[in-house]
Amino acid sequence: MQIQGFHHVAIIASDYLRAKKFYTELLGAQIIAETYRAERDSYKLDLAFADGSRIELFSFPTPPLRVTRPEACGLRHLAFKVADIECAVAYLSHNGVTSEPIRYDELTGRRFTFFNDPDGLPLELYETTEPVVGTGA
């Protein structure tokens, strides 16, 4: 077996319409398909980004809360690639989304920051451009 990469990440939202708006209108994901599953009273929204990465966004009538401690076992966060982190942070701020201060990854020298989706899920912006030599990175 040779894994080729990730196909998608699945997210269950507490408020489907709010999450749909966040991921499509704010983060720019394109809708591939939207399916209502009557037997489960649930929506499944297939979303894609420019590089082909995908999110499956689900709704369920009363999903249980997830443990939110930052170091709880399990998926820690979802990281999005951006070319210009300062521009991306300014865009989020302009749209009412608060992010942490931009930091440097001590291993790669690349810049990153964290913000949350409407349900408080931790999301990361990770700058993919090469670090500039002499920036202290």
Rank of each mutant, 00 (worst) to 15 (best):
D84H: 11
D105F: 00
A79N: 06
T108M: 01
P131C: 04
K81R: 08
D105M: 01
R103H: 13
E130D: 15
V89R: 02
G109T: 06
L121K: 03
L75K: 07
G74Y: 01
Y104R: 08
P122N: 08
G96D: 07
L125T: 00
F115D: 05
R111A: 01
T128Y: 09
T108A: 04
K81L: 02
R66C: 11
H94I: 04
L125G: 06
V133M: 11
V67R: 03
P131Y: 06
A88I: 08
Y126E: 12
G109L: 05
A90T: 08
L107S: 12
G96T: 07
G109Q: 00
P70T: 05
I85F: 04
G109C: 02
T68V: 06
E106K: 13
H77T: 02
P122A: 15
L92G: 01
E100P: 00
S93K: 15
R111F: 11
G134A: 03
D117L: 01
C73S: 07
G109E: 05
G109D: 07
R66S: 11
S99Y: 08
V67A: 02
N116E: 14
L92Y: 09
L125Y: 11
G74E: 10
F114G: 05
V82I: 13
Y104S: 11
S99K: 02
A72S: 07
G120C: 03
G96A: 03
A90S: 12
E127S: 09
E106A: 11
I85K: 03
